[in-house]
């Protein structure tokens, strides 16, 4: 099997639009195919989202996701950029940035040509962009570690709805799995309509019909465990009592807890 990283990318003048299924594995397959077919895509977009260019008659090249190819690309990223590059590229994808595909493609092209970590070459625009997006992701992941608020349901499941700015759940749940290993819990991304359910042993992705109707932290009282509302009230009481009125500083408060997160914060209800 040829190690595709050693194939010199012959970036020709053939410019093209490449589409994929919108998944991470799909994008990695695109990278693989571009090397195999010596393509220099100018646009990489999920199918259906690619703009029709006025100036070319070319049809977009549609790449079919192939997990084996995606795995080989990941192996290549790890080989040259170590685990950090694997995570940085994945987080860049999860950032949902509108230009993420081309940023990742440019980043990987440089990585595969230099063949050692490139994460501090900030003068290269793709490297700088990856570092910025990774930083945004890190901040949002950290916020979710902080702002997730579980509510105990009558059946003992701890449930938390979230609406993060980026798709952070795939790189967030491990923290909760380690911390709440003996509980059963579910964190649900309302915006992206999927969640992570931990049954006390393993984690699985779930889609809940009822979740769409949720638009605040207030779950129907009938669903909650007997003492849940008491603890929520105690937490609000604590939050208010621990404030020092003489030091009031709303600007600082808002910088740390932007209003868009309030909806799911028990103490702000």
């Amino acid at each position: 099997m040829m190690d595709f990283m050693f194939a010199k990318p012959n970036i020709s003048l053939d410019e093209c639009v490449v589409t994929y299924d919108g998944t991470y594995e799909g994008l990695l397959t695109v990278v693989f195919e571009c090397y195999r077919l010596k393509l220099a895509p100018t646009v990489i977009k999920p199918s259906g989202a690619a703009p029709q260019s006025l100036f070319t008659s070319q049809h977009p090249i549609e790449v079919t996701t192939d997990n084996a190819s995606a795995k080989r690309v990941v192996a290549g990223i790890r080989k040259y950029g170590l685990q950090q590059a694997v995570m940085d590229v994945y987080k860049t994808f999860l950032s949902e940035d509108s230009n993420r595909e081309m940023v990742i493609f440019g980043y990987l092209r440089l990585l595969f040509s230099i063949q050692k970590p490139i994460n501090t070459r900030y003068h290269v625009s793709e490297v700088l962009r990856v570092s910025q997006l990774v930083k945004q992701m890190r901040r949002e992941v950290h916020r979710m570690h902080a702002f997730v608020r579980f509510q105990e349901l009558a059946d003992g499941l701890f449930f938390a709805p979230i609406e993060p700015d980026f798709d952070v759940l795939p790189v967030t749940y491990q923290h909760f799995k380690a911390r709440y290993a003996s509980m059963q819990w579910c964190i649900y991304d309302i915006k992206r309509d999927y969640g992570v359910l931990y049954n006390g042993q393993t984690v699985e992705e779930v889609k809940l019909e009822e979740a769409k109707a949720l638009n605040s932290v207030q779950l129907p009282a009938a669903l909650l465990s007997g003492k849940e509302q008491d603890y929520q009230q105690l937490w609000r009481d604590y939050f208010n009592s621990t404030n020092i009125i003489e030091r009031k500083n709303i600007k600082l408060h808002l910088r740390h807890v932007p209003t868009r997160y309030w909806k799911y914060l028990t103490e702000k209800q």
Binding site: A146, M183, K251, H253
Partner: peptide
């Protein structure tokens, strides 16, 4: 195993009061 919680080396601020 069977316990609750761990300590995060970097620390986590779960909320901020109105005094910031």
């Amino acid at each position: 195993a069977g316990g609750l919680g761990n300590a995060s080396n970097m620390g986590i601020c779960h909320s901020y009061t109105e005094d910031g």
